[in-house]
Amino acid sequence: MSNSPLPEERPRLWELMAKTFPKYDEYATETTRGIPVVVLEPSGGWPRPEGRSRRLARRQGAPR
């Protein structure tokens, strides 16, 4: 499931995206269009360990 963040959430999420992939900031300076920020949420199909994302769970040592 995906949705757009609230306008007040966008700056925080953009900063998080840019820390994860710095080219976002570079690209933003090279275009005049607004770059969408989308919030993705699991729709089911796999259990999340203790409510964490799979990537975070792996970083913290949870089995795959």
Rank of each mutant, 00 (worst) to 15 (best):
S2G: 02
K19C: 05
A57K: 03
P47L: 11
G44I: 06
T32F: 05
Q60K: 13
P63L: 05
G44Q: 08
A18C: 15
S43G: 14
R52V: 00
S53E: 11
S53P: 00
I35Q: 10
R55M: 02
S43D: 13
L40Y: 14
T20K: 15
R55I: 04
R12H: 09
R58S: 05
P22K: 08
L56V: 10
N3W: 08
R12W: 05
K23C: 07
R55S: 09
T20N: 11
R12C: 00
E50A: 12
R55V: 05
Y27M: 09
L56Y: 05
L6H: 02
Y24F: 14
L16D: 11
A57R: 02
W46N: 06
M1H: 09
G34D: 15
A18T: 13
E8T: 04
E8N: 09
M1L: 11
S2D: 11
E41Q: 13
R12G: 09
R10S: 03
E41G: 04
R33S: 07
Q60I: 01
R52M: 15
P11K: 03
A28F: 04
Y24A: 02
Y27K: 11
M17K: 09
R48L: 15
T20R: 15
R54S: 07
L13Y: 04
E26D: 14
A18R: 07
S43H: 06
R55K: 13
A62F: 15
P49C: 06
E26C: 01
P47A: 11
E8W: 09
P11G: 03
T29M: 06
A28R: 12
E15Y: 02
P7R: 07
E50S: 09
E30M: 13
G61I: 04
R58M: 12
P49G: 04
P7Q: 08
P11H: 05
T32L: 10
V39Y: 04
L56G: 00
K23M: 14
R64H: 10
K19T: 09
P11L: 05
T20H: 13
E41V: 11
R64K: 14
R33I: 08
K19I: 03
V37T: 12
A62H: 15
I35W: 07
L56D: 12
E9I: 01
L56T: 11
V39C: 12
I35C: 02
G44E: 09
S4W: 03
G44V: 06
R54A: 12
P42D: 12
V38M: 13
P42M: 05
T29Y: 01
T20Q: 13
L56K: 13
P63E: 10
R58P: 00
P11S: 05
A57M: 07
